[in-house]
Amino acid sequence: MANDVWALAEISGGKLASISLQLASKAAELAGTLGGSSAAVALGTNTQAAAADLGACGVQTVYASEGSVYDEYLTQPHVEALAALIQQHQPRLVLFGCTNFGRDVSARLAARLGLGIEYNVGDVAADNGEITMIVPAFGGSQAVTMAFQGEGTRLLGARPNAFATNRVGGTATVESVPAPAAPSNGAKVAGPFGTEGAAEAGHLGKAPDGHDIWMPAASGAKLEEAQIIVSGGRGLGGPQGFAQIEELATALGAGLGASRAAVDAGWVPYAHQVGQTGKTVKPTVYIACGISGAVQHKAGMGTSGLIIAINKDKDAPIFSFWDLGIVGDLNVVVPQLTAAVKQRKGS
């Protein structure tokens, strides 16, 4: 069996998601250790540009399939193209991201081709030709070492940000693959991103409750470098509530973070989102205000030095990975805290 390792890139609306580069970097590294070759699979529009980025992360080949059918239908065209490629080339391992897209595609592939699949992988290593994976379990309290059983191609779903992007430089050989026809019975994307106001740069469309959703601001607060981050969630109740958090952050000289719920509600730009689909941060202290601590949020801040949580619900998931927890009303506690910090700093 070949020792080739592949990465499945994520392209949506012609944009390559950053996890693709993480997966490509890891595929290149693993293929090197196993003595196989590395490749990335890029399905969608603007695949030539994607191929250049993926090649820069060290993969030798990019199987590129250009077509709008990938944006028009969920999952099924991707599975058609990938199944054919996997059957033809029989790689040992295919890396995908544990994102909505990655889960949907890999689950279908596993069912269709009878492939072993492991997901939520936090780390992977190849030693003496054996592949082992570390999968966090039980809310991140245990690290389980997993191995594949049996023969054939295996699918590995990695947590976002599990692998680093490694731009080693390089150019991949691009092999073009035809796009499949539209499925006769498919999940058709009727309203793609940016249906309203798409002309406006960075506008991604509307959330179900009518609020606007924006792309990352180019400037962006240096969240990744902040020593303290004050982060706010849905519990703040509205833009005014969020303003309280900004005041606390300013008093502490801290970075301003947010949960996806706060971003989707339009209270704060996307550039401040922490989590699986936002930024990964590791400050000395992370102060979560009115944030429940969903796994997707934890994915971006779970390795912070110290975690302070202010939440009125003592059963919130955040109270399973915290250092100091205030079970109280942030409308009372946060303004008092801001005042106390100002007083202490003598400002």
Binding site: E10, T99, A190, F193
Partner: peptide, 8 residues
């Protein structure tokens, strides 16, 4: 979706 929403 990963970022934003769409109709399917």
């Amino acid at each position: 979706a990963e970022v934003g929403y769409n109709t399917v």
